[in-house]
Amino acid sequence: MTQPVRNDYRPTEAEVARLRDRAQFVRLETIRLIEIAKVGHYTSVFSAAEIFAALYYDVMSLSADPKWPDRDRFLMGKGHAAVGLFPILAELGYIPTEVLNGYTRLGNPLGDHPDMRKVPGVDFSSGSIGHALSNGLGMALGGRMQGRDFTTFVMLGDGEMQEGQVWEAAIGAAHHKLNRLVAIIDRNGYQLDGAVDDVMGIEPIDEKWRAFGWEVHVVDGHDIAELTALLRRVKADASREKPCCIIARTLKGKGVSYMETEPGWHLGYLDPVDAEAARQEILSKVI
């Protein structure tokens, strides 16, 4: 059940340290797994590492059974960041370590995008950008019809705002007053062809979501304490009568300095020498 959370709630220093450590774990594992695949989306994970950590290690209600009907749900519109999710699912015991270590190899269930048929703990498959908010809308409807209290979190890319279906779902979720649906926009500012604002501008996104009937919050997506506190408050707020959109202001490639300034790193590969240097940089920083 949802527990009340005070508006001034802040995680303790110990909790913050633990969550920082888990976000760092997500970044390090991403580097390790992409060494296996020899190509991957480092920076798409790095911008969302704190979001992953806050949700899976603090906010979401989960159980040892990945099919527990009352669990909170997590969907990724930006499915190409799944390489950051898989290590978490392995740590939660949903995926055997040897499967994680065979990432992308022939016949392994783990590829660049998450597949719910093959991977326990993946709440919905993705890869085609723009579907996930609709999938989450359906889950929130299903939860309400069955009297279940779970929250459905849908992480969306900022470039994803260019997909028309996102706005179909935005209208629909507001119309049906799906207050247990939470969209988290990873506003890292970049997509494949360059800056989102140059490729196809999406601002003002806060005003757009408000106009579509959503409650909107803006947060620093790397401030793990603020982010966690906000997510907890949003999940616990039983008085909200509309869906909720969190715009997480993030930095694409956060944690590896040269990735933060070069949009080309949306997709790439680090040779073991560079991977080790990137690992050391991540280990040396407190984000």
Binding site: N135, M139, G172
Partner: peptide, 13 residues
């Protein structure tokens, strides 16, 4: 499109 994707989400529950 939203309807079909949402139906899939509903089915998971």
């Amino acid at each position: 499109q939203n309807m079909v994707s949402a139906a899939a989400g509903l089915a998971t529950t």
